[in-house]
Every structure is written in structure tokens, then in C-alpha cells.
Simulated assay, not measured.
Amino acid sequence: MELKKSTKVLFGIAAGIVLLFIYAPLAVVLINSVNGDATLAWPVRSVTFEWWGRAFHSAGLLSAALTSFGVAIVATIVSLILGTLCALALQRYDFFGKSAINMLVILPIALPGIVTGIALNNAFTTMVGIKLSMFTLIVAHVTFTIVTVYNNVFARLGQLGQHTEEASADLGAGVWTTFRLVTFPRIKSSLFAGALLAFALSFDEIVVTTFTAGQDITTLPIWIMNNMFRPHQAPVVSVVAVIMVVISLVPLWLSQRVTSDID
């Protein structure tokens, strides 16, 4: 369908307004990270990189960053294993309750984070009797990061079909050999894309983390919340926010490039 020139102009203006609404606040955060005024006064009267130096020399901040990286990496690895197994089972086999399991795997990403956080907190502390710790935090992150891996692998397996795997089995290869030599090479790009998305989701998650981390664990998003309104810390928080945006965007960009290259 061919659109009129006036319609294209209106759509372009509307898209520009939406993008401005989304990304203008990010530009403000970037400007605040070099704002010479510790109270972030506007308009900006001076520019300084002092806050960047303070950020990279803050022991508490670096510790929180390492915690976030560690949790995200472990959650991503576990999600790769479980998500791939779930995708293989639900894409390649028929069994009772298949549709229900498919919905349950995807459900955590659709639920509000506060609902997931409260539910997991009650499950850990009341039902199971486990003290909130790094273990409970990683388990909580896996519940929603697994979805990104599962969706990517499930879709890729659906595109590939089963002919090559059946041919491998006819030639005498076992299940593991077929997966290692036939299936894995064809889904590895989807695994990589799913892992990048899982890492990005886990790294900047705060709502579920708040309910499942325990009092002694501080991730980068929690550090930001704790320091947001402390005196002279707002510019440093802006620096951390800029870094988090970059760290989150890189995996998303790479994931998009990888998935777009899948034939």
C-alpha cells in the first residue's frame, strides 16, 4: 500500500516525538554526568569529569558492579542450559501438558516484576525456608532470563525442521552426537543472541532483585537506588547510569545483529 506524502510526513513527526520522549531523558542523564554543579542545577554552567573519576574510584560501586556481572553471567549460563533443554523438549516431542509447560516457561517475563519478586520471596522464605542470598538471587534471575534463550532456540528449531536430525539418527548417531554435530552448529547463533539478551536483562534488573537478594548483597541497580538522594552523589549516579545504558545496549545491539544474520 502506497502512502500519501502528507501521511508519511505525519508518521515521521509522530515517530520523532516518540523517540524524543524516550531518549531525551537519557541525554539529560549524560549531560548531568559532566555537570560541574553537584546539585545538578540547570542550565549547566560548567563541565567537569570529576564525577567520572569518583565513580571509578568508589570501592562500594566497584563491588556492586562485580556482583551484578557475576550474577548476570551465572544466570545466563544456567538459562542457556535450561532454556535449550526446554526448547528441544517442547519443539521436538509431543506429550501431555506440553502447551501448559510452554505457557509456564514464558509467563515470568510477562508478569510484573513486583509480582514475581513477592512470589519468589514468599516461596524462598516461607515455603522452602531458605535465607535470601546470592543463590536465591540467581534463581530469581533465571526465572525470567531463561525465556530469552527459550524463545530464540524454540523459534530457530521450528525453522530448521527435523530432517537433518532424523538423517543423523538413520546413520547411527546417538542423541548427544546428533546434537553436538548437527543441531548445535545450526542453533549456536540463536544461543548467542539469547545469552546476550539474558545477560542484559539480569544485569539491570532491580525489582525482582530487591525482593530476593538479601540485605548483604548490593547489585549495581540497588547501589543506584541507595545513593540517588545522598548529598553530592547524584552526579556519580548519573555516571553509573550512563555506563549501565552502554552495557545494556551493547548486548542488545549484538543480539540484533546476530539474529538478523540468521539465514
Rank of each mutant, 00 (worst) to 15 (best):
L137K: 03
I187Y: 04
G161K: 07
R186P: 00
T143D: 06
L171C: 15
V149H: 02
E165A: 04
A140E: 00
F179Y: 10
Q162W: 08
A167M: 12
G172A: 07
V139D: 12
V175H: 15
T177K: 12
T136R: 14
V182Q: 01
I130V: 09
T178G: 10
T145F: 02
N151P: 07
I187Q: 04
N151R: 05
G161P: 07
G172H: 07
R180T: 13
N152K: 07
D170S: 15
F144G: 08
V142G: 11
L160W: 11
V153I: 14
L132H: 13
M134K: 12
V153Q: 02
T164K: 15
V149T: 02
G129V: 02
F135D: 06
F192H: 08
T136D: 10
D170E: 11
A140F: 01
D170N: 15
R180W: 05
G129P: 05
S133L: 14
L157H: 00
N151S: 12
A167H: 05
A155D: 04
D170H: 12
Q162E: 13
E166D: 01
K131F: 04
V153L: 00
F154M: 03
R156F: 03
Q159F: 09
G158M: 12
M134Q: 11
A193T: 06
A140C: 08
H141Y: 14
N152D: 08
A169V: 08
N151D: 06
T178S: 15
Q162V: 05
L191F: 07
T164W: 11
F144Y: 04
N151Y: 00
L171E: 14
I146K: 03
L191K: 00
V182L: 01
A167R: 08
I138G: 09
I138K: 10
T136C: 05
A193F: 02
T177L: 05
N152S: 06
T164D: 12
L171S: 10
L137V: 07
G129N: 04
G161Y: 04
F135H: 11
T178P: 08
A155E: 10
S190E: 00
L171P: 10
Q162N: 12
F179N: 13
D170M: 15
Y150T: 04
T164I: 08
L181A: 11
P185R: 09
V139H: 12
T143H: 02
T148C: 06
L191V: 05
H163G: 10
L132Q: 13
L137E: 01
E165N: 04
G161Q: 02
G129W: 03
A169L: 06
T136A: 11
V139K: 02
K131Y: 09
D170W: 12
V182K: 01
F144W: 09
L160P: 13
F192D: 04
L171M: 11
T183H: 09
F135G: 10
F179H: 11
F154L: 05
P185Y: 03
V175D: 15
G172V: 07
F192T: 13
F154I: 01
G174R: 11
V147F: 02
G161F: 05
K188T: 07
F154Y: 14
M134H: 11
S133P: 08
W176Y: 14
S190R: 01
N151G: 00
F135Y: 15
I138E: 14
D170I: 15
R156T: 06
L132E: 14
T148S: 12
E166G: 04
S168R: 12
K188C: 05
V149E: 00
L171G: 07
L157W: 01
T148F: 13
